[in-house]
Design a protein around this nucleic acid. Structure first.
Lengths: 234, 234
DNA sequence: TTCACTCAATTGGTAGTACCACTTTCCAAA
DNA sequence: TTTGGAAAGTGGTACTACCAATTGAGTGAA
């Protein structure tokens, strides 16, 4: 009866979590996103714990973004939500004083990798979205539009990479850095949109785009680095 | 009285979390790691909720690795623990079917960035640890020792980068990939340690080391890529 | 005085009950 | 057939009681 610990042992061995958490984790591992868990009352009986203790762990798993509890409906297995991770990271940055700059470099690392993988895939349809963002960026005369186009570009870049983990972490980081980015954007919005600066941005993004279109991962990575070096100093 | 929402508003605006979670998050943000929270009974009264509801959220925050509850002692603010994130990621990978390969590429991206930053810092003391790992790798005749030295090398590389966020994410990913790595290691342990393979590994690591020692970020990144390309095909 | 021990207060952990609000289902009435 | 609402089920909260671990102050002896 205690033989099916293929998936469970790795969790219980790696993390010295309490048995109840591990039991729940193993249960969830056997389910798929969207599946409905047994009701709290049933599950409490089945696991031989009180509903109070069970809810404590369910709260934890919901905090981790693994579960979603819907009042009146039930508890469901969730797909990993980047915003849940972002919530944790936000708290951690405040309480643990993780420097924003160090997070920025993680973001750069992910974007660089995304560019490389996008170049390897070279999916014409997905790459077209990047091109559209660049065109928008070049056509407008408003700082706000440039910022929007910039966001759209980086988003389409991640999509073009087609790497779910990369997308997940990058989105989580984006959420974390949103406040910082908002401050920076605010500053840029109050600056006049100089033609030279706009041309510079368009040029940088075009280089990334060209490298990906050409299927050159190394050139794509260099282009991303050049981009972030430039806006880092602006 | 409602003016001090500099840190709080970002949380409540970004995440549509319930008020209680946000209130707790704001409280935690004003504290430092190691600080002790009020007792559950006091906090429940202060926030005007039941201890039941409060414990539900505390469970969530503990799951996120932000808090640590110690029976009989109290609840304390924690520094961000990579293993907590790894726990969540493990569950997420199982339930959301995030491909291991996509996670590997995130790991590569982080390691590449670490190499670049280590080269920029060029801290002789920290770099020396990398050299030691390489020497160990070259001197031994056991597969197990090579694997240990390999781990030591990548660990000292992250340390040499001196980027806390990079280290945090890389460690979390290492924990997640531990099972997969264990399988791979197992396979390697049963293979004979060919001199050519060992020389290849030593050569790859030496290239990374040399580039960092020379303070050349680009070369360091290329060396990391070369390394992972090679072991990816082995 | 100093050290070691005991014990009571405090704290987190669990159990159980009751009730509320919301959702879903299904059956009966139009 | 359609529609309305009742009923059952679910998560959310509150409250009480008790357990186990920790802490610290007080007490005792050396």
């Amino acid at each position: 009866m205690t033989i099916e610990n293929d998936a469970g042992s790795s969790l219980s061995e790696l993390f010295a979590a309490d048995p109840l958490s591990v039991a729940l984790a193993e249960l969830i591992q056997e389910m798929r996103p969207g599946d409905k868990l047994p009701s709290e009352r049933d599950l409490a009986v089945r696991l031989d714990v009180s509903r109070t203790a069970l809810r404590d762990r369910l709260g934890m798993l919901e905090g981790l973004g693994v579960l979603r509890r819907r009042t009146g409906a039930g508890t469901f297995v969730e797909t990993l939500r980047p915003d849940a991770l972002a919530f944790a990271l936000n708290l951690a940055i405040s309480s643990s004083h993780l420097p924003l700059a160090s997070l920025e470099s993680v973001r750069i690392a992910l974007e660089r990798q995304a560019a490389a993988e996008a170049a390897r895939r070279a999916d014409p349809v997905l790459i077209a979205y990047m091109k559209r963002a660049i065109d928008t960026m070049a056509a407008t005369e408003l700082s706000a539009d440039v910022l929007d186009a910039d966001r759209a570009f980086h988003q389409s870049l991640l999509r073009a990479a087609g790497n779910p983990s990369l997308t997940f972490f990058a989105e989580a980081l984006s959420n974390v850095l949103t406040k910082d980015l908002a401050d920076r954007s605010e500053r840029l919005l109050h600056e006049p949109l100089t033609t030279s600066r706009q041309a510079l941005l368009v040029d940088h993004h075009t280089r990334i785009y060209d490298a990906i279109l050409a299927g050159d991962p190394d050139a794509a990575m260099r282009a991303v680095d050049g981009h972030f070096d430039a806006i880092g100093n602006s």
